[in-house]
Simulated scan of single mutants.
Amino acid sequence: MKKSAKINGRATITPPVSPYWTTADYAHETDVLRTEVWPAVQKFLAENWPGFSAAFTADDIVLCTLCWSEFEALTADEAADLSTRTDEHSIEGEPTCCRAALDEFRTERGIPAAQRGGAR
């Protein structure tokens, strides 16, 4: 008989982010994670939880050029759901990370501006 078990967890360590950084700055922070932070994490695991293993991966993320947060947008399901969309003009791909990105997105597509003072 098969028995499923969840055995994989993920710890995320995020370095600081600055809106003024270049690609080289982000590469430097990733290198610091790989060469300094990651070895410290491995040592901590070995000393405190023998037998645990971990792996280092660096994910690509897309940053909003207006708020410098991770870019987020509505899915098709979210755009159709009254509880998650901005208003009746919301469409798939509409930014949700900041109002400035939403305004820019709608202006570029000729979609009426979102009303101010709502849930967002």
Rank of each mutant, 00 (worst) to 15 (best):
A55P: 01
K6I: 14
D31S: 07
T86E: 03
R34S: 06
G51Q: 08
E36K: 15
L45Q: 02
V17M: 12
T75K: 13
T35D: 05
T12A: 05
Y20C: 02
T96S: 02
V32N: 03
E72M: 07
T23E: 15
A54G: 11
T96E: 01
A73G: 01
L102M: 13
C97F: 09
E92P: 03
A58P: 00
D25M: 07
E94V: 04
L74K: 06
C97S: 12
L66F: 13
H89A: 03
A54E: 04
E88M: 04
T22N: 02
S69C: 10
Q42A: 09
K6N: 10
T57N: 09
A79Q: 04
H89N: 15
T23C: 04
D87N: 04
C64F: 07
D81F: 04
C97T: 07
P95Y: 05
A80Q: 10
C98H: 12
L82T: 06
A73E: 12
W21I: 09
N48W: 09
E47W: 02
N48H: 15
E88W: 00
I61E: 12
A58T: 10
V62E: 09
H28T: 10
D25W: 08
E29G: 00
V62R: 07
C64Y: 11
P15C: 13
T86R: 10
C98R: 07
E94C: 04
S18W: 08
W68E: 04
A80S: 07
A11C: 02
E78T: 03
E72L: 07
C67H: 06
R99A: 09
I91K: 08
V32I: 13
L33Y: 00
E94S: 03
T35Q: 09
E88L: 03
T14D: 05
A100K: 15
G51P: 06
E29S: 08
H89D: 09
H28A: 11
W21C: 08
W21S: 11
A73D: 05
T65N: 14
Y26N: 09
T96Y: 01
D59C: 00
D59W: 00
V37K: 00
T12M: 05
E104F: 01
P16A: 13
E78Y: 01
T14F: 01
H28Q: 09
T23S: 12
L45G: 02
